[in-house]
């Protein structure tokens, strides 16, 4: 089936998406945008997180056809949209080890900060509860979000 969507500001059309394929497959396999990761395909890990019409979603649980006509922002589009502060904070805080979880976490952290510019530890842990990281032990990720929230004041 044909699916047209706006990805990171550019109009894209996929002519041969499968009816039961997901937005994640459209992004990675049809459009070659591999920043969005595929790990579990069951909503558990958050590595496939993107914005769909401004709402944070797991792209592995959205049908390609459900995303037809939508605006999608992936991790590749965040810096283009002038939102690189979160990415930088992750690097500076040492919140990236293997990096597999990072795109999803950056998306979730970005969404949190858009709604709550100065989150506490509990807010951060609740907002990132759907993102698994097998490397960092999470503390440095929490640090990174604090740092992104107030880049100048956090050590």
């Amino acid at each position: 089936m044909k699916v047209s969507l706006t990805v990171n500001g550019a109009r894209r059309t996929v002519d041969d998406a499968g009816e039961s394929e997901t937005l994640l497959q459209v992004l990675r396999d049809h459009l070659g945008l591999t920043g969005t990761k595929n790990a579990c395909e069951q909503g558990e890990c958050g590595s496939c997180t993107v914005y769909l019409d401004g709402t944070l979603v797991c792209s592995c649980l959205v049908l390609a056809g459900q995303a037809d006509g939508a605006e999608v922002t992936t991790v590749e589009g965040l810096s283009a949209a002038g939102a690189a502060a979160v990415q930088e904070a992750f690097v500076e805080a040492g919140a990236v080890q293997c990096g597999f979880c990072t795109p999803g976490l950056v998306m979730a952290a970005h969404d949190l900060l858009a709604h709550n510019p100065d989150p506490g530890d509990d807010d951060i842990r609740e907002a990132l509860a759907g993102n698994l990281c097998r490397c960092t032990g999470y503390q440095k990720i929490v640090d990174a979000v604090h740092r992104a929230a107030s880049p100048t004041t956090t050590p």
């Binding site: 909503g43 958050g46 944070l56 979603v57 649980l61 979730a108 907002a127 759907g130």
Partner: peptide
């Protein structure tokens, strides 16, 4: 329920 992305959908 789940996580923010799950609750959003």
């Amino acid at each position: 329920v789940g996580s923010p992305p799950i609750r959003n959908r």
